[in-house]
Amino acid sequence: MNPVLVLGGGPAGLSAAAELASLGAPALLVEKENYLGGNPKRWHYSLLAPDLKPAEEVLGELLRKVEGNPRVETRLETTVTQVEPAGKGFRVSLRTRETLETREVGACILATGFDHFDSRRKYEYGYGRYPDVLDFKELEGMIHDDRILRPSDGAVPKRIAWILCVGSRDLQVGNTWCCRMGCAVSIKQAVEIRQKHPEIDAYVYYMDIRTYGLWEDLYWKSMQQYGVKFIRGRIGQITMAEGGKRLVATGEDTILSRPTEVPFDMIVLASGMEPGHGTQEAAKLFHLPVGPEGFLTPKVADINPVDSGIPGLYLAGAATGPKAIPDSVTEGMGAALRAFQYARD
């Protein structure tokens, strides 16, 4: 049996490779970076919502199943540059910096994932210009190392604001969808900070809080147990005050129906999810249709969310839209099963 190509080493890809191996099928796991673990690894995610389990623990479980598994062949710093049909499966060209190799695979799983929105595109928030305006993926690393300090002067911030939906639900940057994670992750970050540093005040500026399903519990706890404050209104711009020492968030408090200009020591932007660079490349490579948002689209999303519509080609994880890690892991398993069924006979 030819191996099943799994493109992408994030949670969905790891889960697919691990599942294929457990079914007794060989898997060829290809990752463009020099590590496995995808975005959670890249940005040093701290605890994962909603159970507040360390990211290492969740990823570690998947990595253990893959690394050193004789049925999983892992290729790091490798990209697929060419694809053509070969029998029932595909013939793919794998390129590293030095080598180019052609392999025959029985089926393909695309787990190419997402990229965080580049907050610099929301120029009015001053990300990239003001050092104390952070992207929440950077704060995630700070929380991970428990060094909550202002980048500008290294002082401990007294008051932090989170701004939700940065690069999400926003026609101006062309991203009309909800990232699904921003609310939960921001609230989780606020909770983590309040747990460790109760002297820091935490405010979240929101339009809607979308901690969907059972994640709602996190939102409730954050108010009740950790005193995180929520202010309804989308911040319009961030400026500097007090001689460039403090940030001021300008917006409308829509509950007060009043303009608000409040100083903060640090402002964290909950940047949205966009189709990853790898996902865009994969769409071109396999001539796959993409939706209006740029994500890959399953043939029939509600009946089989992992089937691409091309025989032998399956989709998993955030390549088809913003997704939480548990959902990506589940889809990786589903895609592995479908690919196994296809490539088996």
Binding site: Y203, K229, D253, T260, V262, P263
Partner: peptide, 8 residues
């Protein structure tokens, strides 16, 4: 009419 501070 601008609200300029938050106080706990």
């Amino acid at each position: 009419r601008v609200h300029t501070d938050l106080d706990l």
